[in-house]
């Protein structure tokens, strides 16, 4: 029960942090383009503005699905981000929470495209088919890399167990084993596709399919969809950092400076992960075509993920 209370308490924290992360991402992106860029709290302005705007439901839309999916997407991605954060704070876990988190994050991105395809707009449908293809591309290596690391750390499917394993072995997992290092690389490569930013924003490409699934959404529904996206970014970068790069020194910080320091270090680390896997690619790459993206994922991360799984089974 205590865990549940902490989980509820983390929800607003996730909301604040994910929008803040988005703001930093936009600022850094702008600075890399030699622009001043929006203020860091810009996503909050956007969110509030969209929240108090009129909501339009097109007549061609399948009303119930169209209305329900943004809330479902936002809820599942926020909970998906809150679970690891709550576990970090509470230092405990429930069996299978890692699977739950991965499921919620996938659920969120599926809900976005389902809502888009129910809008009755042909671009929404194109976005849907593109997203499903992308899902097949990145979801498998992403999951395999998580499985690989959970074998290494136990085997255990409890998120906090993996962190504990890193504290015990006195090394972060990515440094300790080859298999985990490969898994970490796979996970990092999959982040930009999982959150759908350039070069993998194919389902939402503005110039090709006019934001794809988001095209017919307006007002509060759009705000929720944007929130879902930014909390997915937050959640994945937090997961990537804590699962693979949780240096034991971070844990030792809490002995010296208190628990806030540990949490702060984790957030700082995940910010770095986000800048490397989301901001940097979207600044220096052009958008890929769906076939190219699919091929990219089946030629690099998938074999890497399978290798990592095999290595971790063999004990490397």
């Amino acid at each position: 029960m205590i865990a549940l209370e902490i989980l509820l308490a983390t929800l607003p924290l996730v909301f604040l942090l994910s929008l803040l992360f988005e703001g930093i991402d936009r600022k850094v992106h702008a600075r890399m383009q030699r622009r001043i860029g929006p203020p860091i709290i810009q996503p909050f302005y956007d969110f509030i503005k969209l929240l108090v705007k009129e909501n339009i439901v097109p007549t061609t839309a399948a009303r119930s699905i169209f209305n329900a999916s943004p809330s479902l997407a936002a809820a599942s991605s926020i909970v998906g981000a809150a679970i690891p954060l709550a576990n970090l704070i509470a230092r405990t876990g429930i069996i299978g929470d890692l699977i739950l988190v991965m499921y919620l994050l996938t659920m969120s991105s599926i809900m976005i495209v389902v809502g888009g395809s129910s809008s009755g707009n042909p671009y929404g449908a194109v976005g849907f088919s593109r997203k499903i293809m992308m899902l097949i591309g990145y979801e498998i290596p992403l999951l395999i890399s998580v499985v690989s690391i959970s074998i290494k750390a136990g085997p255990s499917l409890i998120y906090y167990d993996i962190i504990l394993a890193q504290i015990k072995s006195d090394k972060c997992l990515a440094c300790a084993y080859i298999s985990s290092a490969t898994a970490a690389l796979t996970f990092l490569l999959c982040i930009s596709a999982a959150v759908g930013v350039v070069p993998f924003d194919i389902p939402e490409a503005k110039t090709e399919v006019i934001h794809g699934p988001l095209i017919e959404y307006s007002g509060p529904q759009l705000a929720l969809l944007k929130l879902a996206k930014s909390s997915t970014i937050f959640s994945l970068s937090l997961l990537a950092f804590t699962l693979f790069f949780y240096f034991p020194t971070i844990y030792e910080l809490s002995i010296v400076l208190g628990e806030i320091a540990t949490l702060g270090a984790c957030l700082l680390g995940s910010l770095m992960v986000m800048l490397l896997t989301v901001t940097l690619p979207r600044t220096v790459f052009a958008r890929l075509k769906i076939g190219q993206a699919f091929k990219t994922y089946w030629f690099f991360p998938l074999p890497m993920a399978i290798t990592s799984l095999m290595l971790s089974v063999l004990g490397w």
């Binding site: 929006p38 203020p39 503005k49 339009i56 110039t207 934001h211």
Partner: peptide, 21 residues
């Protein structure tokens, strides 16, 4: 573009009228 950079004031060019203000 960088010299004028309307995004510093929050302006974003969107593709769908449903998103626009």
């Amino acid at each position: 573009t960088p010299r004028y950079d309307a995004e510093r004031l929050g302006c974003v060019l969107v593709g769908s009228p449903r998103h626009a203000d």
